[in-house]
Nucleic acid binder design. Structure first.
Lengths: 289, 289
DNA sequence: CACAGTTGATACCCGTCGGGTATGAGGGAA
DNA sequence: TTCCCTCATACCCGACGGGTATCAACTGTG
């Protein structure tokens, strides 16, 4: 049964699904638009399903196409992870790459692993909230110390500990004079990070932005350094776990505890499918320690 | 970066890895052997890794190749699951297929699902111990009521309940006269099923078969009907969960409780990645019910 | 209302590559 | 040695992914 899915076509499909335009998707893929049209038609024929509803004014996903988006992402991730891992295995060196979010210190775990497997090369990679899970899924890292909330798709999650979160304010801000602040007092301020990372904020943000309908969206910062820079520039505030906020210190911002903010959960995640001795040992070490 | 993994080559790789022979793999794939040689070489070049150690007397896996076997299986499963699901979604009918092992009655769950989603087509598929997890992984079924022990690779597992297990004996067997038996008393009998399904047996079986080194391996039965047929033919015994054993009744076999046998765990598993409303609702129903 | 500028679809050409057959090189077993 | 069995190489052909040129249809605007 030679009905293997063609990953090239799947990748093309995802580009069209994301751009909702054959023309834009084609230039993003650096191929000509007619090629893309033909490849997508072939994919639809192979799958026996219409994926896009075309019109002369643009393209939309069919229900089947919408369904295929998630599947396609999963398949491509799985494939790239397989490539990465076998390349790594081929280099012959036993290697374990561990991701960690700022403020989390995997030092003890790394040391224990190196003692137990002297020939194992242990690497550490700093992640960000956006990619802390993604990097495990596509094989760039083997395990990751993450901060909630996460989407644990297909991953094993070992909760470790929680820690309080604080708000980072510009040093000159009126609230900075207070020893502690409440969520309500922060309602009028811009949140300079993904709202999903601070679910408690969400209600505030929506009602707050309704006050100023024409206001431009607040800038988004990916790394902690960027967030602090924006805060120092008085563009708004961010919420960070205590250890993260205290790890970086600059004189023009201050941290204050916030009443009513849930503590942040730290966990170890790794792919449930994978069962190397090193990974199992690491789970053991972390669970015990 | 046009370095998409070619699933055809991956499938070829798996065939060679399983046959450990280019010639046999080629005929299993219904292609000529030189084609296979070329495709595998291409795959190795793309991955930058030698997967096989060839000799004029056969083929062996390199360490990298051995590593790639698992990855390859995962990728192919992911791909076929994606195809199956999008085809199903394209048929337009909302459909949920539920697997169940013999003796487990998903009736209540199915009824609750049908009430909550009147337009949803709920199908049920009887599984066997070999494929109860595999069928979820490759998308043939959406969720499965399984019996432990299982290998929960990447799946969400919701434990439901446990039930005692019994031994099934030929009606004429001396032990059949006893109201209950012990594991030690069964040691001399052949176990007509996968030993992994009865871990407590394992030590017994090894020492037992050491007594008769030249004996042919016992036959393996896949379905309960086959198992009972073999027991009735006095080929050996099987261990079954109580509800399974009582579901089928034939006069020439009897069930007896066994001391020292762990009860069997029943659970619901489904793919952690998938998040359709129907699947979420089902997990909800099962957890509550 | 007509014309410009989108959109995706079609037609055709070319080079790569997956399929085949024929054959070769190496090494174990009789 | 001779035979046979392994995998590798050489060559051919049709399918297919890439390209360009062009078209048909619809939007929006002067």
């Amino acid at each position: 049964m030679p009905d293997d899915l063609d990953l090239r076509k799947v990748r093309y499909f995802l580009a069209v699904a994301e751009e909702l335009s054959f023309v834009r998707a084609a230039e993003r893929l650096h191929i000509a638009q007619p090629v893309l049209t033909r490849q997508i038609k072939a994919l639809e024929r192979e799958l026996g399903a219409a994926l896009f509803a075309r019109s002369t004014r643009g393209t939309a996903l069919t229900p089947a196409g919408a369904r295929f988006v998630d599947e396609a992402r999963t398949v491509l991730r799985s494939a790239t992870a397989a490539q990465r891992r076998v390349r790594q295995a081929a280099r012959g060196d036993a290697r374990l790459t561990i991701g960690f979010m700022p403020g989390i210190l995997p030092t003890a775990t790394v040391r224990a692993l190196r003692e137990r497997f002297p020939q194992l090369t242990v690497e550490v990679v700093r992640t960000s909230w956006d990619d802390q899970v993604e990097m495990v899924l596509d094989g760039r890292i083997d395990a990751s110390f993450v901060r909630f909330p996460i989407d644990p798709r297909g991953l094993t999650v070992i909760p470790l500990y929680t820690e309080p979160r604080v708000v980072v304010l510009p040093a000159g801000h009126p609230l900075a004079a207070r020893p502690t602040v409440t969520l309500a007092e922060l309602a009028a301020l811009e949140l300079l990070q993904d709202p999903q990372a601070v679910p408690e904020w969400r209600g505030r943000v929506v009602s707050g932005s309704a006050v100023r309908p024409g206001a431009p969206p607040p800038p988004r910062a990916r790394t902690v350094e960027e967030k602090l820079e924006l805060v120092a520039g008085e563009r708004g505030v961010v919420v960070l776990p205590e250890s993260t906020a205290h790890f970086y210190h600059r004189p023009d911002v201050v941290c204050r505890p916030v009443e009513g903010l849930e503590p942040n959960q730290v966990a170890l995640v790794y792919e449930a499918n994978r069962q190397t001795v090193e990974l199992r040992a690491m789970a053991e070490i972390v669970r015990a320690g």
